[in-house]
């Protein structure tokens, strides 16, 4: 369980996170959304202990990330947005790193690499961004850490890889794991997420499970927009809109529309 209380953070006086309080429970895939610069990557770095909290507290299973203790680090893995990789082969890097993670599954890693069509003998420095991303995602999933933080995981992935990624994340999920995905490519992860959190500098704008969102709002597309629509966006096949779900009907959450609606409410 990740618990964040009153978290604030600033880079050289420029406030990025301000008094954020939230929690992330096990067995869920969280979508961390927000405009550029609201502090999504900063939040990940704070969770990993790569940045030091100035105000507020973070606890992951009762441990603070500050000090980067080995017991804490062996439970988490973070895939940054712009992973560059060391100057060594994927296999060598993976076998070196994996020995520090007790739940590492070498067979799973080999399988994921083959599904992603990546050769373990190749050096990271000879791979494209997308290939590097696929390699580190394969390792991240095979390490089987309790907490997995993925920053823009689908950036640089081609269309088949995005589908593979969704399949792999869904397969890797169990009731003990917590996966947090930060992304702007919401369509890539739309069907994966159990919980959506929309972050803003000043507050958490939305922190709800997908099922709660579905029971609260109705997402639809139609040429005739109902009068009670909360938010409308013109689209190709008509207008996409959000309305209050008064009928109890379940609709597929359009995360992009939801994000824009929540942000428009803020304005």
């Amino acid at each position: 369980m990740i618990e964040i209380k009153g978290l604030s953070f600033a880079y050289s006086g420029y406030k990025v996170l301000d008094n954020i309080t939230t929690s992330f429970g096990p067995g869920r895939i969280y979508g961390l959304l927000g405009a550029n610069g609201v502090g999504k990557s900063t939040m990940f770095k704070l969770l990993c202990g790569l940045l030091t909290t100035k105000q507020g507290t973070i606890e992951i299973d009762g441990s603070s990330p500050i000090g980067r203790k080995p017991g804490f680090l062996s439970k988490i893995f973070y895939v940054p947005e712009d992973f560059e990789g060391p100057d060594m082969s994927i296999g060598h890097y993976a076998s070196g790193v994996a020995q520090f993670y007790p739940n590492y599954d070498a067979e799973l890693f080999a399988r994921l690499l083959s599904e992603f069509e990546i050769d373990a003998e190749r050096k990271f420095t000879t791979l494209s961004l997308g290939q590097r991303k696929r390699a580190i995602l394969a390792l991240a999933l095979a390490l089987r850490t309790e907490y997995l933080f993925l920053d823009e995981p689908t950036n640089g992935l081609d269309i088949p890889s995005k589908a593979e990624f969704r399949k792999m994340v869904a397969a890797a999920m169990d009731e003990k794991r917590t996966i947090i995905i930060s992304t702007h490519q919401v369509r890539d992860v739309e069907n994966l997420l159990d919980h959506i959190m929309i972050l803003d500098k000043r507050a958490v704008l939305l922190d709800k499970s997908v099922s709660d969102i579905q029971s609260e709002y109705l997402f639809d597309i139609s040429a005739n927009v109902p009068e009670d629509a909360l938010y409308v966006e013109p689209g190709l096949g008509g207008c996409c809109f959000i309305s209050n779900n008064t009928s109890g009907e379940e609709s597929r959450v359009n995360i992009e529309l939801l994000f824009n609606y929540i942000n428009s409410k803020k304005k």
């Binding site: 770095k45 990993c48 790569l50 680090l73 973070y78 560059e84 060391p86 790193v97 520090f100």
Partner: peptide, 15 residues
């Protein structure tokens, strides 16, 4: 960018 892997390797500071 690249240093995070060193920092996140599960070993203590003393090690």
């Amino acid at each position: 960018k690249k240093g995070y892997a060193y920092a996140m390797l599960p070993a203590s500071t003393l090690e």
